[in-house]
Design a protein around this nucleic acid. Structure first.
Lengths: 217, 217, 217, 217
DNA sequence: GATGAATGAGCGTTCATTCAT
DNA sequence: AATGAATGAACGCTCATTCAT
């Protein structure tokens, strides 16, 4: 509809929004600071977006698209659960490294201040992965790669919980500090180690193949 | 020195603060709304607390004390990891049922807007449990109740991540919706089931005793 | 960059500020009352001025500029001390008549509440006249128009004291009343008379007995 | 009426009030800080004084009484104008040294914020000295100790102006800085010198040419 | 009679949003 | 179509004053 803003400028605006929302939170982010940050006026923000909430939604959605892209290569492959999990964690770790403010903003949107978006956004964001993980684990179960007495939905839920917390622990102030308390180092200092340990943690949870058992003596 | 306000009224004020902070977030919570909520004036808030931040900290600390109490009975017992975990989860679930706003406020304090408290509070809040869990898992490892090739610190971290997310999923708007997407029901509809599934998920992760392995056929 | 407010409006705002500060003092003047007085919103005040203090400083400086203008014609002429003094007093009296609130605000800035500006403003305001008067009296002394045994700096100080008090007595509530007590009339009722008497006072105060004169050689 | 407060305590309270009013000004002085300063409660202040204004008036009056005492010995003597002036200045300088906050408070009361007391206090404070000085100068004139063509009321006014400014210059932040700009030193560094110069100024300001002298007959 | 906790009006300041230019 | 100045509601906070204890 509005053409004056090049696609690049729009991307820049949204990226600035993501950065601010991630750093300051929803309330403390000011529209004029965003405008100033990219060298436009508040006017254009309000031309493209109804209000601050609308702009926030746009930022979230852009971020979501990028996450989808980052994960798309991981998802499309057919493979064993463990391999998939490893590739997924790896992709998420890279995403955290490259787009920490996206994760931060994502965390902001789970806060009470963003409660009015709650239902709407939860569906957009979690819908895909929840269905994906659930189906994946159902299949794993059928194939004997997961405890037969497990509820695949809840296991999918626990699985995603671990992935989410991993991301927050890499990008969000409070959770970074918490990670330090648990592990004594910054999360980026031992990405590989964290990934391997998480895989172990998951692997014992998901699969109990002979090879694994033999580790235990 | 301050006597007019009964202990009960003070508790009520803090509880109102916790409720508001949990519902609205740090920024959107207004001191005058809290005062109105409990039928006092803003003045008294500022008699007892230096400023809004100070009041927030007092709310967090009150909440923390109550959580500690709720968990104290769980912690002092000597028992196997699995039993301990079950009792811990149970206690947390009850705590969520009885004090959802405490959990909501706790979640708020992890958001960017509360960043200035980050380091301070992370230590107060996570310090105890991080040391507790780590030591517990180290012991479990020595006693053969956990994979020998696991990093007990990271496993403690993953363990607490799951517990945290469980609580958020019971109490916080976004995470409740997310839970519904994963499981199709409200978290309080199946507390027992969730607990048992989480135990299974953990159990495979932590312990690999013969009896467990035999489940897998 | 700021264009909506015409120069006139801006002047009007500052003038309103000067009036309020002069009438109410620094503390009792409220930004919203000033905004209301000129029919704008508080927002615009904070667009142009960082905070109340900054606005106050702007008012003082505007006032100072206008005083400088009012006196500039007086200062540039070369003449005898008495003529200069007469013209100076006359100019100050006119300034008091035309801008009483400026003098009132100037008086406010000497009060304890404005202490934080003290050193800064004293230099801006008094610096010029103190140097000017001192040099003038030094010259007068060299030319034999002033007692040789006088300290020109202190005489300049006394001189300015008289001029300041004259202005306050014309414009400031307390000092107007005080003037009435001394003279039985309003200061504006006898400007010419006051001026002439002040000139007499300056030119030979109190006594001119032989014994005194003999001090002069 | 109220007896519980000893005379000493009351004096202490008033002295604390004078100090605070002098340091902070009328608005910025808080009743509770005064109470705290002397170790009582606001309650007693409001038992003795209707409101803050009333307390301020009481402080001013106490201060006035003390000034009167300080000057009483000076005033009651019969002597020549010059001697009287010297003793008066000396007494004022001592008063400034010993009770600077009284002078500061006196200055505060001339400010716009205290405008509502204006008329009332001006009469109480200036009434005596204005009549005294005027009568004194009238007499001096009759006795040939002052120009015959001078208006004794205005000369009394100028005289008191100089004395007031001297006191402010010793005690009040802004005026102290101003003094420094004029003279390059603190006023207390050269009390004797200032006094002597002021006496010179009063006795024969600026010029003492033959033509001037001839006015005196 | 003394206390000092409670009150609440009022201030300084911010910022989402509008709309004249 | 873009601008960014103007608006004004709402917030955090203070303090003179009251009045239950």
């Amino acid at each position: 509809m509005l053409r004056r803003l090049t696609k690049e400028k729009l991307e820049e605006i949204l990226e600035a929004g993501i950065a601010e929302f991630g750093e300051q939170g929803l309330e403390r982010t000011s529209m004029s600071r965003i405008a100033a940050r990219v060298g436009t006026s508040v006017g254009v923000l309000y031309k493209y977006y109804k209000d601050k909430d609308d702009f926030f939604l746009a930022c979230v959605r852009k971020s979501l698209r990028e996450l989808d892209e980052a994960l798309s290569e991981t998802i499309c492959r057919e493979e064993k659960l463990r391999q998939y999990a490893e590739r997924l964690i790896e992709a998420l770790q890279r995403h955290c490294r490259e787009h920490p403010s996206h994760i931060r903003m994502y965390h902001e949107l789970t806060s009470a201040g963003a409660g009015r978006f709650g239902t709407l956004l939860a569906q957009e964001i979690e819908g895909v992965s929840s269905r994906l993980y659930s189906r994946m684990l159902e299949q794993a179960q059928r194939e004997g790669n997961m405890r037969r007495d497990a509820d695949p939905k809840l296991f999918a839920f626990f699985f995603d919980n671990l992935l989410m917390m991993l991301q927050f622990s890499c990008c969000c102030g409070y959770y970074r500090e918490r990670f330090r308390l648990y592990c004594g180092s910054d999360p980026e200092a031992s990405e590989e180690h964290i990934r391997q340990e998480l895989l172990k943690f998951l692997e014992s949870a998901f699969t109990l193949e002979e090879t694994e058992i033999s580790h235990q003596g």
